[in-house]
Simulated assay, not measured.
Amino acid sequence: MTEYAYAVVHDGNKNILMFRKNQRGYFFRWKAIKRQGKELHGGGKWSIPGGKVDSRPRPNETDQQWKERVTPEAVREFEEETRTNISALPSTCQRWWDDALHAYYYGTYFECIPDQLKDSLDGFAPVLAAGKNAHDLIRNGKIHEGFDVRLIEGCGIAQRDDEQESVEIWNIDAKWNEIETWTADRDLSWFYQILLKMRQ
C-alpha cells in the first residue's frame, strides 16, 4: 500500500493557494540535476503541493494516530516545493482510498488569516522566480550534475524541488465549474475530492 499527502493552505473562507505544475522538473533536493528534465506527474496542470508519504503506518492505527503521522509529511512536501514552512498553522486532515491504485491519499488543510494568504503570493514570487532561473540554466547547459543550485547567482532562494511553476489564490465556489471537470482526469481527480470536502 502506498500513501500520498497533500497540503491545502486556505483562509477559512474557501480561498486557497492553487499551484500550476511545471511540465518537467530539472532539479531535486537542490543538487540532483536532471539535464533533460524529469517528466512530472500532472505536469502543466493545476496542483496541490504534496507527494508520497515516507512514514509507515502503525498496526491498528487510530484516526488520531494517522493524522499525527501524515500532517508533518504534508508540511514537508509543501516546504520542499515552496520553501515555506506551514507547520505553525492549525490543521485538519481527511483521507480517501483509491481502489484502482491501492493507495490512500490525504488532504491536510492548513488555515491562515486572509492577509497571510495574500502576503504569501509576494513571498512565493522570488522563490519560484529563482527556481525558474535555475530550471532555465540547467536546460541551457549552464548548471551540471553535482552543482548546488543555491550557490548559483540568481538561484539562491530556489525551492528544494523544481515542481511548481506559479501560484494563484482561488475561491473554490467561484472556480467550482472548472474543478468539477477534474473528476474525469486521472491526474486531478484526487484534488477534486480534496477540494470537494472543503466545499461541503
Rank of each mutant, 00 (worst) to 15 (best):
G141H: 13
C112T: 15
P126M: 03
Q94C: 09
E153T: 12
P114D: 12
P114A: 07
H102R: 09
I138H: 02
F110M: 01
C112G: 11
C155S: 01
Y106D: 05
Y104H: 15
S91A: 13
H144Y: 01
A103E: 15
L151M: 13
P126S: 03
P126H: 03
L117R: 04
K118L: 14
Q159K: 11
Y104A: 07
G141Y: 14
T108M: 06
S87C: 07
D136G: 00
L121G: 09
Q159G: 07
D122W: 02
L101N: 11
W97E: 04
I157R: 03
T92V: 05
A88G: 02
R95K: 15
T92Q: 06
A88P: 00
A134Y: 10
A129T: 14
L121V: 12
C155K: 00
G156N: 08
G107S: 10
S91T: 07
K142H: 05
D148W: 02
E111C: 11
G154D: 12
R95S: 13
E145V: 07
W97V: 02
N133A: 11
R83S: 14
S120V: 05
D148I: 05
I138P: 01
L89E: 05
E153G: 08
V149F: 07
A158P: 10
R139S: 09
Q94R: 14
E145D: 10
G141F: 12
A103W: 00
R139V: 02
L151Q: 12
Y104L: 15
F124C: 01
L137E: 08
D148L: 04
A129I: 08
C155Y: 00
T84W: 08
A129V: 05
P126V: 02
F147E: 08
Y104F: 15
A125G: 07
A134N: 11
A129Y: 04
I138Q: 02
R83N: 15
K142L: 15
W96E: 09
L151K: 14
A125C: 11
I113C: 09
L101Q: 14
D99T: 08
G107A: 08
R150W: 06
E145H: 07
D99F: 05
N140M: 13
D115Q: 13
K118W: 03
N85Y: 06
V149H: 06
C112L: 07
K142T: 00
V149S: 04
Y106G: 04
A134D: 07
S87D: 13
L101R: 14
Q159E: 12
I157E: 10
L101S: 13
G107D: 06
L89Q: 10
V149G: 05
P90Y: 06
G156P: 03
L89D: 01
G154I: 04
G123A: 13
N85V: 05
W96C: 03
C93R: 04
D148V: 03
I143S: 11
W97L: 10
F147A: 14
D98C: 03
A158V: 04
A100Q: 14
T92A: 06
I138G: 02
F124V: 01
G146K: 02
P90V: 04
S87L: 04
